[in-house]
């Protein structure tokens, strides 16, 4: 508990988490508002449409989570941390919990903010959140942000450098996971095992695919996909912690 309080003080005593949270919200809610305003009978507003742009906020949050650890290496405050708490795994775990929880909260704000603005713009369209699938689609965004933050912290801990970690994360989540599907023959087979693709699957399972969206034959159901995404992220985190424990700070 003490260590969680320590990491909370650290996180909120610089301004960058506030900026990241604000940026994630503004971008996602802003784009959703534009799209909602342009929905029509051919392209109707649905709960799924209000959540279709969560990835924009997620990229910002992935960067924030990676920065939470890489800036500690950049300014050597990681050494001050390990001096205060020589049990490195405890210290890093506390940071992961605090940062991921913040990511989860930002995820919920992004999701309900996007839904809320859509409702404001098109008050006559019924986008009430009723079914379990709809709840998963909206409230589940927080869970995906939470798990994504764990993934990002693992990468940040392994690479230690901000530029490298951010580049790897964005290239991975934005480019690799979507383009891997176009590799002939094996592409689809690889893509269905990609972590962020499975995170997305958790949110969208049971909805109609958007026009042009590739249809993937997923290995798991909705919750299984989230579990798989979490397992990959936690596995990566364990590797990162073992490396951080062994190497010189």
């Amino acid at each position: 508990m003490t260590l969680l309080a320590v990491e909370r003080i650290k996180l909120f005593s610089t301004r960058s988490p506030w900026w990241c949270a604000a940026l994630a919200l503004v971008i996602t809610v802003g784009i959703t508002a534009l799209i909602a305003a342009n929905t029509s009978t051919e392209f109707p507003l649905t709960v799924g449409v209000t959540q279709a742009f969560y990835t924009f906020g997620m990229y910002v949050v992935l960067v924030m989570a990676a920065l939470a650890i890489t800036t500690e290496y950049r300014f050597s405050t990681i050494r001050a941390t390990f001096l205060a708490v020589p049990n490195r795994i405890s210290a890093l775990l506390a940071k992961t919990v605090v940062v991921s929880l913040l990511a989860g909260v930002i995820g919920e704000l992004v999701a309900f903010g996007s839904w809320g603005i859509s409702k404001l713009i098109k008050p006559d369209v019924n986008i009430a959140i009723n079914t379990a699938q709809e709840w998963r689609n909206v409230a589940g965004v927080g869970a995906v942000f939470f798990v994504g933050a764990i993934f990002a912290i693992a990468i940040g801990t392994l690479l230690r450098h901000t530029a490298g970690a951010v580049a790897l994360l964005l290239v991975w989540a934005l480019v690799v996971e979507s383009l891997v599907g176009i590799i002939p023959k094996i592409g689809d087979d690889i893509q269905r095992w990609m972590p962020f693709v499975n995170g997305n699957r958790f949110l969208t399972a049971g909805t109609e695919p958007f026009p042009g969206e590739p249809v993937i034959n997923y290995p798991f159901g909705a919750w299984g996909s989230l579990g798989y995404f979490a397992a990959i992220s936690v596995g990566l985190l364990i590797v990162a912690f073992v490396v951080a424990k062994r190497r010189d700070a």
Partner: peptide, 9 residues
């Protein structure tokens, strides 16, 4: 090292 501090903290 006196620089082991986050500059924005």
């Amino acid at each position: 090292d006196a620089k082991w501090v986050h500059p924005n903290r």
